[in-house]
């Protein structure tokens, strides 16, 4: 993955999103580069999911620019990205078929699909559940399947929207290990979470949002040790700001 030219950096300029007259995201400016694990942190309703969805292209901005500088004129940037949602979308098929479906969509030859899906399931520790209907799997298994499904698309950028919000600690750890695997393989991680512990474990840099505004954008260490703003400090100490 790293050998290719990357679609990064991602430049976000004056990004605004409004829904039925309410401004939900105000003038966000951001530049994300290769290598750093970016964690978008903030309380519920801060606009974390919105920002992810806008960057991934699932939503259209009301105004402002989202620019994948490295994408240039080659094919669509979204083809080099994957997204994992808080509640994973499980097709009404087996775990294995959930993965071969993605391979089919991405134009992989039928003869290659089985083997590649087997490998992805093994990576996620789901080999023994290959034939299990995906919707009968536990929340943690489903999220690992969603990550395996993202893995086989070999994304340059992986968006994660609170992937462990409804998981127990063991399942959370398994998911975080897989996310580390993406990072090691050279995939840019952009993850939204409201879990401070998770942010501390995974983040290289923090994008701190509150009430639809970008409050801080700084290296993780300096954000946690010495936040620049009152809002950041209050969030870290658990004095929520409404």
């Amino acid at each position: 993955m790293s050998a290719r030219q990357s679609i990064l950096p991602l430049e976000v300029r004056q990004l605004v999103f409004e829904a039925s007259g309410t401004r939900l995201l105000h003038d966000v400016n951001l530049s994300l580069t290769v290598g750093q694990r970016t964690v978008i942190l903030g309380p519920n309703g801060a606009g974390k999911s919105l920002l992810l969805r806008l960057c991934h292209g699932l939503l259209t901005p009301s105004s402002g620019d989202i620019n994948w500088r490295g994408a240039g004129t080659r094919d669509r940037a979204i083809r080099h990205q994957a997204m994992v949602f808080q509640r994973p979308v499980m097709l009404r098929r087996s775990a294995h078929a959930n993965i071969t479906h993605t391979l089919k969509i991405r134009g992989v030859a039928r003869s290659e699909r089985r083997e590649r899906a087997d490998a992805a399931l093994a990576l996620a520790g789901l080999s023994s559940l290959a034939d299990r209907p995906a919707r009968l799997m536990s929340g943690g298994e489903q999220q690992r399947l969603a990550l395996a499904r993202a893995w086989i698309t070999e994304p340059e950028v992986l968006f994660l929207d609170e992937p462990t919000a409804s998981l127990d600690p063991a399942a959370t750890r398994a998911v975080e290990t897989l996310i580390e695997g993406f990072h090691t393989a050279g995939t840019k991680i952009i993850m939204a979470t409201h879990d401070l512990g998770q942010a501390r474990r995974l983040a290289d840099e923090i994008v701190f949002l509150n009430k639809g505004r970008l409050v801080e954008f700084s290296p993780a260490r300096s954000f946690f040790e010495n936040p620049e703003t009152e809002e950041g400090r209050a969030f870290i100490t658990g004095d929520l700001l409404w």
Partner: peptide, 10 residues
Amino acid sequence: EYGDHLRSLD
């Protein structure tokens, strides 16, 4: 239910 996933896959 499926929209996000299918659009994310392009």
